[in-house]
Amino acid sequence: MSSSDVTPSTTTATADAPRSRVPLGLDLVGSELSVLFRRRRTWAMLVAVALIPILLAIAVRLSSDTLAPGEGPPFLDRVTQNGLFVGFTAMIVGIPLFLPLTIGVVAGDTIAGEAGQGTLRYLLTAPAGRVRLLLVKYIGAAAFCVAAAFTLMIVGILIGALLFPVGPVTLLSGDVISVPESLLRSLLVASYVTVSLLGLSAIGLFISTLTDVPVGAMAATIVVSVVAQILDVLPQLSWLHPWLFSHYWLGFADLLRQPLDLGSFADNILVQLCYIAVFGALAYSRFSTKDILS
């Protein structure tokens, strides 16, 4: 009896000691995530994102007109026949503006927000180091990308299933897949959109190191995402298009073809990695040489 009482306490003690000493980053990530997701602003943005599919589904449900194929955003005419299309349509509507907007707010706030509140100094007095802080902040922004994309998709599926019949899904190629497989593809689309937003998050992180005014960094990040999309439609710049971070944003349509085409997913990952590398390096250089005054 007494021996069994002793053993667990000693094991936890030995396990705890290295955990608190070595991977200090993990604790930092944990606290960053809990701060991020306990903020009212974060929840407000996630609710706004969730409203996209909800409003879309309700509007389609309430309108008496049946849509002709090809009218409105893609897939909108299929929504009445199959609720699973709500998620896809909402993703198409959300990705050009709503999602970049929320990412701009979160990524732009990362460093500038702390600087603006005067808490950056205290964060750096803890033996965290600037590189680690930058990494933790980026992981926080990436976690928000995951949350936003999956909220949009999952809420879309739920509201679609609630208001419309659910059945096998017709892919762009005309082939039909079962409900479980279509759910799998929906999650794949959400992952694709998450990856799509990582490049913009890195840009936002860099811009955030440039200023102490968080609103400025947020606005600049959103402007960058709009400018990239404008450049993407100018035919004179076609050589640049494959390297714009927004170029593959709508490429998740390739995940709705049969056989599954992962080519654009791979291209998307490559482009986003380039942006993460370049703007991560810029953010490191800027932040590690910056005079922290606040």
Partner: peptide, 29 residues
């Protein structure tokens, strides 16, 4: 043959006995 358009696809399928043309945008076969 699958002609890939942005957010749409046109399919031409021939299997020796039947030929199909499917346009995802207008949802017509």
């Amino acid at each position: 043959v699958q002609v890939q358009d942005s957010l749409a696809e046109r399919n031409i399928v021939s299997n020796g006995t039947d030929a199909w043309l499917y346009d995802s945008e207008s949802n017509t076969a």
